[in-house]
Design a protein around this nucleic acid. Structure first.
Lengths: 219, 219
DNA sequence: CCTTTCAGTGAACGTCTGTTCACTCAATAC
DNA sequence: GTATTGAGTGAACAGACGTTCACTGAAAGG
């Protein structure tokens, strides 16, 4: 109330505050636009929100939007990029620490869950737009997921399972695991209150899956 | 061109054609509205289309919509109902014939794939709205999936695995299978041209999963 | 110090939105 | 044969939509 003039439902960029370079102020507005779109899309989805709603939420005039993004779709692609940049750095962390744990499930799942908890709106965005977003956004998300699956494949192969299993089977296993984790993440996003239960169940299910992998073609 | 006056992009209900009871004509328009919404939502999603677009596609005036549905959300719930009514009858068929097959995977997967192929727009609708639809629609879909999972649980238990595995583990296995099939259906919808490949991969993955189940807690 | 750059402004446009209301007129009910 | 019902009509509304354009004024560049 002091200076921000937080309107009816605004979350103003407030790039004022006197001292700030031009680039800083621009970046701050850009962030505000991304956050506003993320918040608005949370109640429906990207294709259902309007440029004007985003501008109003940010606290700028509609035309100002075009200084940052050419369209809502490009904004969506930026959000995909941002989401997966964060996700990938988390996965790097998981895979770097993985060998330390006797059971990599117990080591990895809580980290993933924590990341979902701390980046709920981004995960919700990805979960929605993966199936319902504009075609280019869907493509971008599926491509990112495919990349992650590929990385998991090579990581599984590195654990020494390379001679026992065919590359095709390893790829299928990696896909199975990634698909399952995607489903789990969707559930954590949809019902955050049941995180503990969801996680406990996922742990058991992932173990079932790995028991299958361990007994695969070794009978 | 003879009598239908099929406009620029209409798919007219055409409830004329002279002889037809009042109820029949109403039902025909209702169907046309459902189909129009299904077609329009295919290019984005339910929350992004408008009542007027649907009406124009059907070939009626916007206000006529209200004679059939109170809102687009209620139309969405009707589509969910319709989709799962068809899906459940297919599943009944699968489960009725399942015992005949030595390997129930090879018996069931093609039937599911065929059903997806023949009802692509409904499956696409469910896939999108499950994560991106209006809250009530999401709820309805997740509820239907939960019901199917429950039925699969009791079916697994009936196969005689009831003494070897705990009810909780059976439920988790059923959930794992249903989740996987949902993912597979999403892929069949997204990329129909790769059906054969998707199906072959899913077959192997489902086997991996079942190998896990068979070796579960029996070591 | 003067010039250029450019994030943000504000008016204006034509179009589309959901919803209301009183209406028509053929199929049904009695 | 008359009365009722109700699916579909068409005008009207207030507001939101994307996009254009010429603009302002402070920061950055020279």
């Amino acid at each position: 109330m002091a200076q921000g003039e937080a309107g009816t439902a605004q979350e103003t960029a407030d790039p004022g505050d006197a001292t700030a370079s031009r680039a800083e102020r621009k970046e701050r507005t850009r962030r505000a636009i991304l956050d506003a779109a993320l918040a608005l899309a949370a109640d429906s989805n990207l294709a259902a929100i309007s440029l004007r709603q985003v501008a109003k939420q940010v606290g700028v005039v509609p035309t100002a939007f075009y200084r940052h993004f050419g369209s809502l779709e490009l904004l969506g692609l930026a959000l995909v990029d941002e989401s997966f940049r964060s996700l990938r750095s988390m996965l790097l962390d998981v895979w770097r620490h993985a060998p330390e744990y006797r059971d990599f499930i117990d080591g990895s799942l809580p980290i993933v869950a924590q990341h979902v908890r701390e980046n709920r709106s981004h995960y919700a965005f990805i979960a929605r737009e993966r199936t319902a977003g504009p075609p280019r956004v869907r493509e971008a998300i599926n491509h990112e997921i495919a990349l992650i699956t590929r990385e998991l494949s090579t990581d599984i192969a590195r654990t020494g399972a390379a001679e026992q299993y065919s590359p095709e089977d390893i790829a299928l296993l990696a896909d199975l695991i990634v698909s399952f984790v995607v489903t789990m993440a969707e559930r954590l996003v949809e019902d955050p209150d049941s995180e503990e239960r969801t996680l406990a169940e996922a742990r058991t299910q992932l173990r079932m899956l790995l028991v299958g992998a361990l007994n695969w073609r070794s009978r």
